[in-house]
Design a protein around this nucleic acid. Structure first.
Lengths: 147, 147
DNA sequence: ATCCCTGCAAAATATTTGCACTGAT
DNA sequence: ATCAGTGCAAATATTTTGCAGGGAT
């Protein structure tokens, strides 16, 4: 998927709202999709396709997540070496990860505006930490200075 | 490898120096390792294990890169979804990648000290962009505002 | 001579794709 | 009734691991 990056977040706050968004586009709301959305919105953290598939088919989960991401209903983030992790796009979040202990902080984008300004100043890029997180050492690991 | 993150960079500037570092630790300098180091130091950009293996065995390339990384002679970076890319650790670099066009900037760590300060201020982490790059939109893509 | 390293095969992990059938509309 | 979506199998991509033979020391 390339289009997902170009699609603005759709602020669907519930599985029902997301289902409605699917129907609006002429897409179908199957049992698998309903269960996927249910799991997605119930979670308090980003989940892998495997976790989201539950009993169901993982390949379908990937396909459906791709569709939902294309519609801007869902996003995924890569926190380290594991599988991509999916979450509702409406919950606008950016991620900070500790490379030593793996601790993840999910923060509101506004919390990283100072970082964005510094990145712009340093290299001219507009920093975005939704797909790949900001990496570093958390306070505890930085103190241990073992990394 | 977990140890690689804990190992300081060794400033070997040539394949011969790296080979010497291997011998110092009682490790052997095989043809495969020599060729690997040759390719690694000759490259002007980080290369994948596959590229570095050339004709040789990819599994051995991975194993050897892991060893070299454990000694602090080599590092790898993940720029997007492809394979990890390896480069000599002596060339201290951090990476900035455009999520839209894939453009990569390799910069001296000092260029990102301002960013590090902002990250520390915002979330208390010590930013490090050697293993996972700083992600965002390059000036051209940010202007197109298509992402 | 020792034993680290190699090369091949196979497994593990993450993701994608082909295909025939089924179910949402 | 149509055709998007499902579930299974298989392919693809990246990386790791087991093993027996070979080469660096």
């Amino acid at each position: 998927m390339t289009v997902s990056r170009l699609t603005p977040a759709v602020d669907a706050e519930t599985p029902a709202a997301a289902a409605a968004a699917l129907r609006e586009r002429g897409l179908r709301v199957s049992a698998a999709r309903r269960e996927l959305l249910e799991a997605l919105f119930a979670a308090d953290r980003p989940l892998s396709a495997e976790e989201l598939a539950g009993n169901g088919d993982v390949a379908s989960a990937y396909r459906n997540l791709e569709v939902l991401e294309g519609l801007g209903l869902v996003r995924h983030v890569h926190l380290g070496h594991g599988p991509g992790l999916y979450h509702p796009a409406g919950r606008e979040r950016e991620f900070v990860v500790c490379e030593s202990c793996g601790a993840v902080r999910a923060v509101a984008p506004s919390e990283l505006d100072g970082v964005r300004a510094a990145v712009l100043d340093a290299v001219g890029y507009r920093g975005r930490f939704t797909h790949f997180p900001l990496a570093g050492l958390c306070p505890a690991c930085a103190t241990k200075d073992d990394a």
